[in-house]
Amino acid sequence: MGANASQLEKEIGSDQFPANEHYFGLVNFGNTCYCNSVLQALFFCKPFREKVLQYKQQQKNQKRETLLTCLADLFHSIATQKKKVGTVAPKKFIQRLRKENELFDNYMQQDAHEFLNYLLNTVADLLQAEKQVKTRASTNGTVKPEPTWVHDIFQGTLTNETRCLNCETVSSKDEDFLDLSVDVEQNTSISHCLRGFSSTETLSSEYKYYCEVCCSKQEAQKRMRVKKLPNLLALHLKRFKYMEQLNRHTKLSYRVVFPLELRLFNKSDDACNPDRMYDLTAVVVHCGNGPNRGHYISIVKSHRFWLLFDDDIVDKMEASSIEEFFGLTSDVQKNSESGYILFYQSRE
């Protein structure tokens, strides 16, 4: 371990090593790589890390242990290490996670995306609850949940437009999201998958749409486009597909390329920040051939470097090696190392 750590330091070079930066691997507590990979990705999502560390500062005297306090303690322990590289054991965090959600209370391989979802929602709920405690004391009564910093960072808005094919009336409804789950196709790009996400769908026969204007069920066209682009865009590639004939999920190892720089094509006409430029900051990679088997690792960008986190091992890598995580073009092999969750940070 020590050899690996010093190796990384050597590779980066002491004069090149970013000040106040720590590259620490996370010990695996029995199939917890789904957790480690997501935690590393989030740690290198700058605004998220800053807010978690801030929370730690504010909550010095917090008595009650929550998933958020455990996360804050973990981030804090990495950020305050004396050494620049090494490993830490996220023991308390894992214990808390297993205590709070029975889904994760075992030694099975879990889905990294499910964990990300759970973590973000739990943190947001905790923050909202804390806010409400404060506001209730003063205003007394039920208050609409306020957006938290989790929302400030991850939340975007989709607009769901439905056009009745009979009266041509367009009705639209907005929904918020913390991440987008997109279908994947062989030999495509993430941009194409996102456009597929927003492609027009025709609602007909049994799926007819009830039009308020016509007061009856009508054929309609529906599409979902992004209205508010989030600060941090998390994209989940739906690589695990349920195969009815196999009665289980199978992995789609399709080659889906993702650029280091991204803008969206699938935004609505009234989008408030349609030309936001995003930079790839982290990728959670699934290795292996099934959702409950295999391994998760993450690649992250820190300052000018790309790093690969594989549980307790941290390696420097070349940006040009990212293409190794695009997936496979042949359908014969299923055992791929392919990008599963992409984190794009808005450049502003």
Partner: peptide
């Protein structure tokens, strides 16, 4: 010179 919409 010209810049792509995004990416290389």
């Amino acid at each position: 010179m010209m810049k792509s919409y995004f990416g290389g």
